[in-house]
Amino acid sequence: KLDMTNEYEAHSIHGQGDTFFANKVKELSNGAVEITLHLGGSLGFKSKDNLDAVGDGAVPIADTIGGVLAGSDSIFLLSSLPFLAANAEEARTLYTISLPAYEEFFKKNGQRLLYASPWPASGLWAKNPVDTVDAIKGLKMRTYDANGTRTLIEAEASPIQLSWADVVPQLATNGIQGVLTSAEGGVNAKFWEHLSHFTEVNYAMPLNFVHINGDAFDNMSKEKQDAILAAAKQADERNWAALLERVQGNYKTLKENNVTIVEEISPELQAHLAKAATKVISDWKETAGPRGEMIIKAYSDKVGRSY
């Protein structure tokens, strides 16, 4: 019996992915390993706590959004770097290239990485289409991490930091004009009650990491270990595959609620955002050192663009 914590709700993409993983583990180990899922942060741990909580053995398994680990290792800002991956395929390529670095990090902290899965791509939620440079300039938007804040400052928008619970009250009273998040985030919080447009800019697809305590894993029998690893592999496959379906489902919900999905943005805005992103990416390369440089280079070669 193993406890597993996750900050996100049961119906979220990661809640469903972890449920799939837990069921698979039980099935593949013939019931010898049972994972008790504590979703929605019901165990009291937030993503920020998970690295220490798993390392110290407070909980054996956790699902953690990558961004919060950036304070321990800047490699975790990679998956949320702006406009690096244009679609799910590229995000996966980036993940495959950086996987050894992630694995090494968890190993160094007495843990083992089981799998990582993506969030749907974030875009710009607002009352208007944000498809021109003029539309984004001065737009007061809530961002979810330091990368987003830096990018939007570079893009001359006005990023605002707010806790997620304050977002809906601020939207309802026009305290902010937009939100940088995925279509999924907007569906969960019913943004259509306040906003009418989702501009698909494919900003980034941040990763969530599922990690297990090293001792807990090593002390298990070979059969149990194999069952967990096999289930992790299947969960990994499933989550990347489920992404597309998820996005389509979200878009369907948005259309039902009269949200306009803006798929085309002006070439000027595209260039404007790319320029903002270049600054953030090159700053990141500086802090991440040669390892970061190598990953970006390998990735550039793979996708045929240079960063």
Binding site: G44, F45, K48, D49, A53, D56
Partner: peptide
């Protein structure tokens, strides 16, 4: 101990 201290800090 690790659970209690971590949760007290977080809460």
């Amino acid at each position: 101990g690790v659970t209690m201290s971590r949760i007290m800090i977080r809460a």
